[in-house]
Design a protein around this nucleic acid. Structure first.
Lengths: 203, 203
DNA sequence: GTCTATATGGCGATAGAC
DNA sequence: GTCTATCGCCATATAGAC
């Protein structure tokens, strides 16, 4: 592959990523992707044959990146509390930078539920490798909480308020986006406090 | 309005509700709605003029229903713990019956964030009326938790695992849907335990 | 490899008969 | 009020020149 090809492909991928994440597979328009990439519409097909294939390529890359972040954070750190802090902080930062990401992923897993496992596998992500050590550590530190509850509750609290931003923003902050963003940042601490409080009750 | 009109309109609304919730505004097809309602495509336009208007009608009704459920549950009950139990149980039941609902709402508020406040208002839902008494009650029972954190964390834990079902299901239960549904039902209790544990830490 | 022009198909919407 | 037939648009996709 020549340098020129690489450059164009990269431009397309970046543009497609933005448009797909914001609009979803159905809402996205090839014309908009082409415009954003500064190229012609037919070039998209030259590089990726079809919209579906372009989407697949982008989606798999995103899933891979998220999985990797997950793995890195979960294997780092020492105590549960410190892992919590890292996890919450890292993911809230990512989500603030990519506020459309949760909805995008919800959509696509709803549209094609079978595809998700396949994509995790092709990204070399094995959930059990993360889950079992985490369970061991929870027990070692004396927390008898169900590990699935722990993980799901944690991720829920991090992701949901970003996914539901427009609704929470309008109901809790009268539509003041800046206030909402600041509030989300305070959650980096408050989620840890909340979860650690809950964990104590399981001791 | 004649009986016949009412019947057809009702059939259309029911079909449209199902299709829109499952596919979203962009993904839904007028043809599919017509088929499901057992009528001709052009009748849809006779009754609702356009896809957009039909969608608006359905969406507003859904928002209204959810808001009403919310109000009912939040004003009933005595202690915080009992309100929690009712809320969690009621919403998990509703979401199990309508698993596409969270994604549907996430999508539409993302597509049209301005519309959401308007729709809450036209459904006569005033969030402050729910929020302020709840805050008072939390304080009265000695919980010094931030009320926004409390509400958002709670809703997150209820809604997110349903919205993320395909992903959580494949990662935690190897795709066994029945096991996942059973797990969600156990959350009716475990969420209450988790939240009450967290609340104790704020006393 | 990149462009212009055009084909192809699908979908929302309308016209008009009954 | 309900149907059949059809219009017109728009988005994906392809053909072909350069």
């Amino acid at each position: 592959m020549t340098n020129k090809e690489k450059q164009t492909e990269e431009k397309i991928a970046e543009a497609a990523r933005e448009v797909f994440i914001e609009k979803g597979m159905h809402g996205a328009r090839m014309q908009e992707i082409a415009d954003k990439a500064g190229i012609n519409k037919s070039l998209l097909h030259y590089y990726f044959r079809s919209k579906e294939k372009l989407f697949d390529y982008i989606f798999s890359k995103i899933i891979g990146r998220i999985g990797n972040m997950f793995t890195e954070v979960m294997t780092e750190g020492v105590t549960i509390e410190n892992k919590l802090k890292m996890f919450v902080s890292t993911y809230i930062d990512t989500l603030l930078k990519n506020p459309f990401l949760p909805n995008f992923i919800f959509n696509e897993i709803t549209r094609n539920p079978e595809g998700i496992l396949k994509r995790f596998k092709s990204a070399n992500i094995n959930p059990k490798e993360l889950f079992i050590p985490l369970e061991k550590q929870l027990r070692a530190e004396g927390y008898k909480v169900d590990t699935r509850d722990f993980v799901l509750n944690l991720i829920s609290m991090v992701v949901f308020p970003i996914a539901a931003k427009p609704i929470a923003n309008s109901l809790l902050f009268d539509g003041d986006s800046k206030a909402y963003k600041n509030y989300i940042i305070t959650r980096k601490e408050s989620i840890v406090t909340f979860v650690m409080g809950a964990l104590e009750a399981y001791k």
